[in-house]
Amino acid sequence: MTTIALSSFPVLAMIRHGAYHQRQNTPSALQPFQLTEEGQQEVVLAAQRFATLVKENNWQISPIIHSSNQLRAWQTARIYQRELADLFSETPTHITHNDLSERSVGCAANLTIDEIENILNKDPRFDSAPKNWKSDSHYCLPLQGAESLMIAGERVANYLLSQSNKLHSTQTTNNEATEVKLFFGHGASFRHAAFHLDVISLCDIKRFSMHHGEAVMIQQQNDDRWIHIAGEWKIRKQANSYND
Rank of each mutant, 00 (worst) to 15 (best):
N165L: 15
S148V: 04
E56A: 13
S201H: 01
A239C: 01
I151D: 12
K55S: 14
E37N: 11
T26D: 03
A77S: 09
W74H: 14
L161Y: 07
H94N: 01
R207T: 07
V199S: 03
G187R: 02
D223N: 06
P10S: 13
N25F: 12
E154V: 05
A239T: 03
Q163D: 06
E90K: 10
A177L: 05
I229Y: 02
V216G: 00
G18K: 03
G153W: 03
S89N: 14
L167A: 10
N57E: 12
A108R: 12
N25Y: 06
V156C: 04
R72Q: 08
D224M: 06
K237Y: 11
N158D: 11
S135A: 11
Y139T: 02
I15M: 01
A46W: 04
S135V: 08
L120T: 09
D127W: 01
P27C: 07
E90W: 01
G18Y: 14
Q221F: 15
A46E: 10
M217P: 02
A146E: 09
A46V: 10
I64R: 13
W74P: 01
Q60A: 14
P10Q: 13
V216I: 09
Q75I: 13
H228Y: 02
A239I: 07
H21E: 15
E176H: 14
L45E: 15
A239Q: 03
T26P: 03
E37D: 15
I95C: 05
A29R: 03
V44D: 10
D123R: 04
G185D: 09
H94C: 06
A19F: 04
W133H: 06
N57C: 15
F88C: 04
W133P: 03
W59H: 04
C107R: 08
Q41W: 14
R103F: 02
T36Q: 02
D114A: 11
Q40H: 08
A108C: 15
T3D: 07
G185T: 08
Y80R: 10
R72E: 10
A239D: 01
A109K: 13
A129W: 06
I64S: 10
R155K: 14
Y80G: 12
S62P: 05
M150A: 04
V180S: 04
N158M: 07
L149G: 00
K237C: 12
F33E: 07
P124S: 08
L111R: 15
H17Y: 01
Y139S: 05
D198N: 14
G39R: 11
Q163H: 13
E83M: 14
H186A: 07
L45K: 15
A108G: 03
G106I: 03
R155C: 12
A239F: 04
S162W: 05
S137Y: 00
A152E: 00
L87Y: 04
R82G: 00
S164C: 06
N175E: 13
N165I: 04
I15H: 02
L35Q: 04
D223T: 00
E38K: 13
A46H: 00
C107H: 08
N240E: 04
W233A: 06
E154I: 10
A46C: 08
L35S: 07
D86T: 13
Q22P: 04
A188V: 06
K166S: 11
H17P: 02
P63S: 09
